[in-house]
Design a protein around this nucleic acid. Structure first.
Ligand code: ZN
Ligand code: ZN
Ligand code: ZN
Ligand code: ZN
Lengths: 448, 448
DNA sequence: GGAGGTCAATGTGACCAGT
DNA sequence: ACTGGTCACATTGACCTCC
């Protein structure tokens, strides 16, 4: 599906509005963009099969994550101090590191329930990758550090542990429907990217959620986010009322760890109010999401970084063991970084449009030759992917998260985890079906 | 089978002769010895299921070795620099280290063709383990170093690379049937222990090989040993004429490496002429071999060490990566060590007999309380094995064998290896059956 | 378009039969 | 008593269906 390109564009999308940056929504230009072209699995660098559980992954990593993220307790711990490099060849040899990589790149199972909204991941990932240096050509390494989705200039992870960052307006996080029953169990890493998007979507004055079911999705998502923050330290935001069972086995193993570390309440407090104005145009929202991906090199970096830091906090599996230690950065740095990103987004958008317009005539070297070339490459098929990328790039910085091996006793699972596996799956499935019942209208993706 | 002890002794063995050390062949005493009691898998420390391919192993390691020793080329290389500790829990996670451990403890597939003679392994292994500190109680660690089969005092591996050591009498190595076609391909690690035994058996003036088929087996084995030495540097001994196909896949990967290192021609040259006189007594040879095991703390150490060193030379998989470096020892040291072993054998034999005689009356502390206690423990069942032995004992010394990663190109396999796998198996099977055809008489095990 | 189910291929190890 | 074969079981990932 993704492997075969679509040579025939379908110029029948609605709302051909104009963007402030030239005309990025020209149908003929947009249709030529194929964001799935030459995508690589974020986990193992194999050619990706699609966007699964929040990241571009191959079929194998998709299946692996779908199987194991609920039963993390049964995975043996790494013998290599969680530093195994994951590639196509050895991805099956260390389940712990493979799962860690999955979580590092932002994969999440509960977050995938929220329908099309998870496509925002795709947008951010794709734009980030393109801004990083090419869709498939840059085998940006797959060691135990931060994923190659982050550009080189962003590789410094920020410390989101400071409670001063969690000062988000309570109204942004409160769901529409009041919440009587707060949850304390943590089921799995929250989809932090989506959290940021959702929040900004609610803060936006432009098109609100289009249906009640979408509202329910949003509130449910926020509740999940809440539970991910742990039962402790939840002063402002009440929980939502959605009666959903958490994934029990995950909460058993990693949840307890996460509650110890009590991941921050809202890691996006300081950054999210700043959103690119592009999303004000309904045309963008009406585009197919894989087309939107090519038009949105936005806040992915900072949010990704925040999510990665938060995930490392919540899940020791994500903690890169002592290799490079980076001092935590102040929130001001994050804000500045985000502003730089916004500026970059503007230039890249204009650049892409110009390149798209120029492509049919003459291939000149634009101001941003790398990005433009990458966008160009999306339309022509290059079947020379070899996916042997195991060149072990320099590890990016990461915080040292103690692995709790000396003070804790979370190894008594493997019995409870196995026990709760079946029923957990059944419950989850039933509940999922029930939730999806009256929920066909996708969420409005228009942002500020 | 092995897990259930046999409480009923069968006192119907023939030739109840007397030994020079008291009366070690008293049937009632011997029958009470159960060498399989509390044996642990030499590879993973799980309770052993029997003596397989040259070592006490569990069913899993037996099957694993039987499957993979022919297809070593398809095993991915270790990500942990071949230092993975192998135990029951993680034995499946790193095939390379598991196979390395198998080879380290002396497992060999072709050597198992020689019928009962492989029981000599059991004798040596068992006696070595007992002299080392107890049958099952001493979870002597299973890290990437030398196997716990070697006593602490013997852990210094000797360097057998010196060609001066290969000055064995050519008559000892020459097979009965002349050999027109020398072989250069290496199929698998030679059964070095058996090589020594075979050689000593031939050097023995007591009962020679009892049949022509046994002779053929012997010469065939010697030829295998020859091929293991690589085509290069084979000045003295001509190859034997047995038309046997080597295991192609192994020769493809490890064989090339082995030929580079050209493992020594006869690592037992200096030590083998010295054999304990016990084996002159036909009574010993007529005992069930698992009973003999309790009566023979003989040359196992030195031969085991030589075999381990030779195996490390021949198979880089066996090379313990740079951890502890022990200077190679002179052959004189080996000889002295062997003489000490012989003396130890005498005292231990006498001690064991005395302990066995004393056991029925009063349990006193003998001169060698540890060994005697271990022998005692063989007769009483202790079902408290837990096999959680992963306490990672201090690594014993080992030589640094370069892994050839920088200068060689033995990674072009995986195609040839897979190709030659099926036919290799078939050929081997057919050839094996043909060899076994007229070969029912076990070799005479009586030594000098 | 993505989640989840299916199932062939592969690896594993307990068990068994042959020798 | 050991070897090799068998087979149930687990894992993997390509493919498919459903929503
Ligand atoms: Zn993958
Ligand atoms: Zn690992
Ligand atoms: Zn084992
Ligand atoms: Zn290993």
């Amino acid at each position: 599906m993704f492997g075969s390109s679509n040579p025939h564009p379908h110029p029948h999308l609605s709302h051909p509005h104009l963007s402030p940056f030239g005309n990025p929504f020209d149908q003929t230009k947009i249709d030529k963009l194929d964001p799935m072209q030459n995508q690589l699995c974020r986990v193992c660098n194999e050619p990706a099969a699609g966007f699964h559980f929040g990241a571009f992954t191959c079929e194998g990593c998709k299946s692996f994550f779908g199987r194991t993220c609920n039963n993390q307790s049964v995975i043996q711990e790494c013998k290599n101090n969680y530093r195994c490099e994951i590639n196509k060849k050895n991805r099956t040899t260390c389940k712990a590191c493979r799962l860690r990589k999955c979580l590092l790149v932002g994969m999440s199972k509960s977050g995938s329930r929220y329908g099309r909204r998870s496509n925002w991941f795709k947008i951010h990932c794709l734009m980030q990758q393109q801004a990083n240096g090419g869709p498939a050509g840059s085998h940006a390494g797959s060691s135990g550090s931060l994923p190659p989705i982050l550009p080189a200039s962003m590789h410094t992870p920020m410390s989101m542990t400071s409670p001063t960052l969690t000062t988000s307006p309570s109204g942004l996080w409160r769901p529409q429907e009041p919440s009587p029953s707060p949850r304390s169990a943590i089921s799995e890493p929250p989809r932090l990217f989506e959290a940021g998007i959702s929040r900004s979507s609610r803060a936006s004055p432009s098109p609100p959620p289009t249906s009640v079911s979408a509202e329910r999705d949003l509130s449910k998502f926020l509740r999940l986010k809440s539970s991910a923050a742990g039962g402790i330290r939840e002063p402002v935001r009440p929980a939502s009322p959605i009666d959903e069972k958490p994934e029990v086995s995950i909460s058993h193993t990693l949840g307890s760890l996460a509650s110890r570390f009590h991941p921050m309440y809202s890691p996006f407090g300081a950054t999210l109010p700043l959103l690119p104005p592009t999303f004000n145009f309904p045309t963008f929202a009406n585009l197919p999401l894989h087309k939107q991906a090519l038009l949105s090199p936005l806040l992915a970096s900072s949010q990704m970084l925040a999510a990665a830091a938060a995930a490392r906090k919540a899940y020791p599996l994500l903690a890169t063991p002592p290799a490079e230690v980076n001092a935590s950065r102040a929130p001001e740095d994050i804000l500045a970084e985000h502003r730089a990103l916004l500026e970059r987004f503007r230039s890249v958008s204009a650049e892409m449009v110009a390149a798209s317009e120029r492509r049919d005539n003459v291939k000149t070297s634009p101001k941003n030759p790398l990005l433009a070339q990458n966008i160009m490459d999306l339309s022509k098929r290059s079947s020379d992917e070899e996916s042997n990328g195991s060149s072990s790039p320099p590890s990016v910085g990461s915080e040292i998260i103690p692995h709790l091996s000396d003070t804790d006793e979370e190894n008594e699972d493997s019995e409870v985890g196995a026990r709760s596996k079946a029923e957990s799956n059944n419950n989850e499935k039933a509940e999922r079906k029930a939730v999806k019942k009256g929920d066909e209208t996708p969420l409005d993706l228009t942002c500020v």
